[in-house]
Design a protein around this nucleic acid. Structure first.
Lengths: 274, 274
DNA sequence: TTGCTCCTCACGTCACGTGAGGTGGC
DNA sequence: TTGCTCCTCACGTCACGTGAGGTGGC
């Protein structure tokens, strides 16, 4: 018979772990002194202990380990558990590889710029939303700034004339994937199915969109869009839909505006859809 | 001002997380209604939120994130934190790769044998230990079985004659790395610095040893040694010192003996020391 | 008597998820 | 009135580490 300390040394684990395994019924001592409560182990229990440690080493939880060593799972179920574990490990390693790439990118930017960049990009999915909108075609992206203000003016006038209240902040969107003239839209999300004088359309959602928040006037939003486009390209992605500007906060002073830029994306190696 | 629900949707995180970040002081609402306790956020707080989410994404703890976004760390310290994070990720990926290899090995054995093998190998370090011993040279490993019994007989006789009590179970060891005749040792750990009629030596420790427990008589211990040797080779290792047998449990009936086999190892690609 | 080993609580870890039980405004 | 959103506790998670406070045998 071995004391808990000796058994722990033999098994290469802590006394506390042995007490824990006793408490959860994973490995109970061969005998327990009824007066002192001392636990006594048998060297033969090393068989079970080593199976426990080996399974734990594969990353199974103690509860999974218990059902395996107690023979509660068939060989077929065990194969299933091992395959699941394999899949979990593979995906965790992939996530860690991504994380590592992001950490290394931060290190590079901090070493070249001495600080972290001011833009924080985030990836999320976009829900589809119904909007009332006005549209206009311009020759190039440079002309968007001149038309967007008046477009929102007309939009708001039409909405209040119809007595329809927007259900969220204003949205501007346009597709810049093709060169040449492009159609810009000024929109507000609405519940109504139709609004006199306006088009009511369904803005499609996106599985994946890279976003960034722009603070301040629209005069510099072009720079933020360019930085976002660079980030998308460096991430091995490309635009997968019309980009959007969400005017989250629009007080009188444009310096205090808060605008979210959203760029739906797909992997760069995905073929372009017709 | 945005309600907690709107701000959560905007940021792509849960309401509960925002409450948690408030509780730990990581991101407190721009305003809190003193009567209802309602939290109100400002769209401008998206800047901080996005920094928080980006840093969390790199794997930093909330406390680390807080000190970074609160500018409590210098650019130099931040570089250090990023480098540490990188090292942690690299080592975790290496561990996961090892774990994955072990999972796949289990899958292979379970698919070829329909069950898990009965031997559980473990890796641990060995402490150095002082022993009193007798030694003998034999022609090959096959002859060890014949001499070991009598050797332990002489050893025990000498120890009890000297009034020295062993401090642990009996140990047999021998170095089989070279072919040809080899010297076997039968030993007991002792505290005494010298014992009449016996050699007292320091058995060196080992940084890394692959072990397995053998249950039953010594008649079949050769098979267990061979399986251990195969396992060592398949693990990309090779013997790095004398192998040992620890007689953990030796009742009268040899069928109930429990013996731990220990094989100190080094990486197989390490050059052989002179 | 001093060490050493053993014991039983019981809190702390980390970042929330998940009810329970209740409130306030459309 | 029914939904919906918001609130504050407070427990649960996972596998122990780490005291606190005390006991038993050499």
């Amino acid at each position: 018979m071995l004391s808990i300390g000796d058994f722990a040394r033999l098994g290469g684990l802590s006394v506390r772990m042995l007490r824990h395994y006793d408490a959860v019924g994973l490995l109970v001592p061969a005998a327990v002194d009824p007066y002192t409560g001392y636990r006594w182990y048998d060297a033969g229990q090393l068989a079970r202990l080593n199976r426990v440690l080996a399974l734990k080493d594969l990353g199974f939880t103690l509860d999974q380990v218990r059902s395996i060593v107690d023979d509660e799972v068939s060989a077929e179920e065990l194969r299933g558990m091992l395959r699941l574990r394999r899949a979990e490990l593979v995906s965790r390693m992939a996530e860690d590889a991504d994380r590592l790439a992001r950490v290394e990118r931060r290190l590079r930017t901090i070493e070249s710029e001495g600080t972290m960049s001011e833009h924080e990009y985030q990836t999320k999915s976009l829900d589809a939303v119904r909007v009332a909108e006005v549209s206009e075609t311009v020759g190039s992206v440079d002309e968007i700034g001149q038309v967007m203000g008046p477009m929102f003016g007309r939009l708001e006038t039409a909405l209040s004339a119809a007595g329809v209240a927007p259900t969220g902040p204003g949205i501007a969107y346009y597709d810049v994937r093709d060169d040449g003239p492009l159609t810009t839209h000024a929109a507000f999300p609405v519940d109504a199915a139709k609004v006199p004088g306006l088009d009511v359309v369904e803005l499609p959602g996106a599985e994946r969109s890279v976003n960034v928040v722009h603070y301040g006037s629209m005069a510099t939003i072009g720079d933020t869009w360019q930085a976002l486009a660079r980030h998308v390209e460096e991430s091995g992605l490309r635009p997968g839909g019309a980009c959007r500007e969400i005017y989250l906060q629009t007080p009188a002073d444009q310096t205090d505006w808060v605008t979210e830029l959203q760029q739906p994306v797909v992997p760069a190696d995905l073929p372009v859809q017709a």
